[in-house]
Design a protein around this nucleic acid. Structure first.
Length: 555
RNA sequence: GCCCGCAUAGCUCAGUGGAUAGAGCGUCUGCCUCCGGAGCAGAAGGCCGCAGGUUCGAUCCCUGCUGCGGGCACCA
């Protein structure tokens, strides 16, 4: 029995108590939905319901008497072993061992599908993250979203949402020219312009480009600038894509700002805004009156010199996303962009959308790296910027992703590189992966011993040990953890859950012998415990997969 | 000045209205003739920043204050 099944029984019981007259109130006092929680202390039961407190006010009855009436109905429901009332009106439920234990087989049968729900079904989400300029490597400022954004997409999909991961390429405007000029200067042995790009990577780009096309430096300056700009753009973009691929972060759409302009999307976006009457002209510029919707000041779309602002592209891009059928456009931005939140929301409102529904801007605080007790400021590769590639080289993909994902994004993050390369319990990713490897090892041995627990008569009622029922309860929570992580846009919940699950497993392992020793027989207990182990392994694997972290069978 | 976020154990941090507020590290004490000790059990350690409010009940929601971080372009 899953916790969701039990919650249904609780609702059923409440309605039954009213129908039979033992609970003297209207059926409308029963909430439409309810859930059961794991009590902090196991002595309180396997699961607890607070439905009596929820109903107290609408029913106009004391919570304890409601609890008594609901409990009486619950007691006669199948799978329920014992029901107690405690404190102000908690209903504590003990499940029959067979009902609780059956979950192990359910999980093994469902396999990688266990944990998937349709709690976010029907949502069509555009998830934009990173969107680094193609003028340099993916750096530390992008890494948090590279991991969290990707995990969020996976979690949303597991909750049934349709998700497009999108990367917006700012390949237009003055910065691109400065980028091209910088590479060109280096290639010609000249100093990089003051306002250009000075990273060491510019030298690598120049060298690669000249090696591929030695004649490039013989072109006239104006042609050469364009040639370098385009070659460097293509090369740098490919490098970004490669490093993100190696980081297990894959995008469905790489959206070029240039194509936005070439396709007429900018004009269409402006038309849409004009249509809703929030555009105006002043001082020779065209403005969007974002102050109609909570922005601090109005924003310029077309400068007095006739050039389109970056903001004009942003608005067009938003309108374009909506035109492609996404009803939720999620933006993942760094804290240094938090000033954009109100203006982006205002854009949605100016386009006639609901800023609370159609657009969501999530802000992540910044990331620092520490090593040897000091902040890391220098990159091996790029000179003055720490790159994602540096981080991967330093600690590996799994440790990097996991440690970036396991914290909520709304507080600043400090990565301790010394800790992340440690293969000890100080490093949570190894703690979780170790549990998976440990179980995998045991299952291999079971196979060597010829124990086929999947086909050998599983009796769920064997799983009666306190540590076994604690583990089962934890396993039962996985689907709702994933659903909550999706709904709240907080993939770190999955990581924290996995750490708790690993702890519950290790406790079980410590208390309960699984495999038969020496010449002992294969008992029903052995079979049942192996099923429980495999169920745990499956959930650890499913959870790690949602984070884009590997689940090793040996380590 | 205005806007956003944060404040929980010595340190790094979980905990989106429920029972005795948790984990890791650090400190102290135990557990491998036995399935992976990369593990487990226990001890010590707290004005959940301060003050009000809402609630049967607040670390959680609201207001004010204090402290810290970030942001306020006809830049990209």
């Amino acid at each position: 029995m899953t916790p969701e099944d039990l919650a249904q029984l609780v609702l059923e019981s409440a309605h039954a108590a009213i129908a039979s007259g033992t609970l003297a109130c209207d059926a409308s006092a029963v909430p439409a939905d309810t859930k059961v929680d794991r009590p902090k202390s196991r002595e309180h039961g396997d699961w607890a319901s607070n439905i009596a407190m929820q109903m107290a006010k609408p029913a106009g009855l004391p919570p304890r008497s409601i609890a008594e009436a609901v409990a009486a109905e619950l007691r006669i429901r199948p799978g329920v072993a014992q029901v107690d009332i405690a404190g102000p009106g908690f209903i504590n439920v003990f499940l029959e061992a067979g009902a609780a234990g059956a979950l192990a087989q359910t999980i093994v049968t469902e396999g990688s599908a266990y944990g998937r729900t349709n709690s976010s079904a029907g949502e069509k989400i555009n998830l934009e993250f990173i969107s680094a300029n193609p003028t340099g490597p993916i750096h530390l400022g992008h890494t948090r979203w590279a991991a969290v954004g990707d995990a969020m997409a996976r979690v949303l999909e597991a909750a049934g949402a349709e998700v497009a991961r999108e990367f917006y390429i700012n390949d237009r405007g003055a910065q691109m020219d400065k980028f091209g000029a910088s590479v060109m200067a280096v290639a010609n042995g000249q100093p990089v312009p003051e306002d250009g790009y000075h990273g060491a990577y510019v030298h690598d780009l120049a060298a690669t480009i000249v090696a591929a096309d030695p004649a490039i430096t013989s072109l006239p300056d104006d042609e050469q600038l364009i040639a370098f700009r385009e070659a460097a753009y293509a090369l740098q973009l490919r490098l970004q894509q490669e490093v993100l691929d190696s980081f297990n972060t894959h995008f469905d759409v790489w959206y070029s700002e240039r194509t936005l302009h070439e396709s007429g999307a900018v004009e269409r976006g402006m038309d849409k805004l004009r249509e809703h009457g929030h555009m105006f002209e002043q001082d020779g510029a065209v403005w969007l009156r974002t102050t109609d919707f909570d922005d601090d000041k109005d924003r310029v779309l077309v400068r007095s010199n006739g050039e389109l602002t970056y903001f004009a592209s942003d608005t067009a891009y938003y309108v374009d996303k909506r035109g492609r059928g996404f009803d939720r456009c999620i933006y993942l931005l760094g804290a240094d962009h938090h000033g954009y939140v109100n203006r982006l929301r205002a854009v949605a409102a100016c386009a006639g959308d609901d800023a609370d529904r159609n657009i969501e801007v999530l802000i992540g605080q910044l990331v620092k790296m520490m090593k040897g007790g000091e902040e890391v400021r220098l990159s091996k590769r790029a000179g003055n910027i720490i790159t994602l590639e540096d981080l991967i080289d330093e600690v590996g993909v799994d440790a990097a992703r996991y440690s970036l994902i396991r914290y909520p994004v709304d507080s600043p993050l400090v990565l301790d590189l010394d800790l992340l390369i440690k293969r000890t319990s100080e490093n949570p990713v190894f703690y979780v992966q170790y549990a998976h490897a440990r179980i995998s090892s045991m299952l291999r041995q079971a196979m060597d011993l010829g124990i086929n627990f999947r086909t050998e008569g599983f009796d769920p009622a064997e799983l009666v040990h306190e540590k076994e029922s604690a583990l089962l309860a934890a396993l039962g929570e996985f689907p709702r953890v994933v659903a909550a992580a999706a709904q709240l846009r907080e993939p770190h919940r999955v990581a924290r859950y996995l750490e708790d699950l690993a702890t519950d497993y290790h406790r079980f392992y410590d208390a309960c012998r699984v495999l038969p020793q020496a010449d002992e027989a294969v008992t029903p207990t052995v079979v049942a415990r192996l099923m429980l182990c495999d169920a745990t392994r499956q959930v650890l694997s499913n959870g790690l997969s949602l984070l884009g972290v590997s689940a090793p069978e040996r380590m």
